[in-house]
Amino acid sequence: MGLFRRSETIIAAILLVAMIIIGLINPAFWQLDNMFSLLRSNVVIGIMALGVLLVMLSGGFDVSFPAFAVAAMYLTVKGMLAIGYSGVLLPFLCAVAIGVLCGCLNAFFVYKFRMIPLIVTLGTGSMVRGFLLGVVGTSIVNINRFPPELIEFAKTELVSVTRPDGSHSGLTAMLLLYLGLALAVHLVLRYTMIGRSIYALGGGAEAANRVGFNLRKTIFFIYCTAGALAGFAGMLHCSMIWLANPRDFVGMDLVVIAAVVLGGASIFGGRGSVLGTMLGVFMLVMVQNSLIIMKVDTTWQLVVVGIIIVIATVATAWRDRRRQA
């Protein structure tokens, strides 16, 4: 446990140093507005990262979740428009259900055919997105038609500041959903047998089987939960930006995986934590956000994210080698 804690303290320390440096370069970083928008940007990526963490803990690799998230949100919004339903809870449940269904597909192929998860999820992701764009449609549901209840819901604020000059800034309450889900995943991982079985599976599938874990249950749990989190994140995302775009989240897989790796999870499975993942997400979002503040051209974002992935993986490879030594 000490090792985990240590790698999280290291991440936190790096994070703090980075924040101070960015703050020195551009003091606007510390402004309430910026902090609020930074936290807001954490929510969707963070929820997706929780799902990716589960998969990575088991020694798997998931690149299908952006497709699942898009499918969940777009199908749900389209459905709402078709039947004229408006509400909040039911659409979210529906999106989660779609996510679970897609996750089942991953789990089935990973468990039944013992195929490398990267290849399975490449296939399922392509299928789901291809189905969505090819069968359901390619048109964007924009703010004019977007269900207003969802917009209202996503506008809920936790803290709201109105300055004398009339400008307003607020901290979105969606942050609570993220924190709640993170806490839930943490508790599941730490205090339930199914959570421990994920670590056990990542530690060694053969041993987990011999000890008597039901691997089918574990694998289905992992991929279905990851799918559910992706679906939920997708729904939340469209509610927060007031439009549902079926081409959204392209390239999102890399960003989220980068965040999870940055948070100290091992790609070989068995090591990683929710707290580390949240720190990784925060770090990545902060860097992206600061590029804008520091007036770096947005086209550089990909390059920067890529370099961060490379540095994070070099660092973890170095750490793992030292652990073995």
């Binding site: 290849i119 490449l122 392509s126 299928m127 291809g130 189905f131 764009l133």
Partner: peptide, 16 residues
């Protein structure tokens, strides 16, 4: 897009 779908499905089929 549908062809993307078919590629994905085909990959899964090959795995199976």
């Amino acid at each position: 897009h549908l062809i993307d779908f078919i590629w994905g499905a085909f990959l899964l089929l090959v795995i199976a």
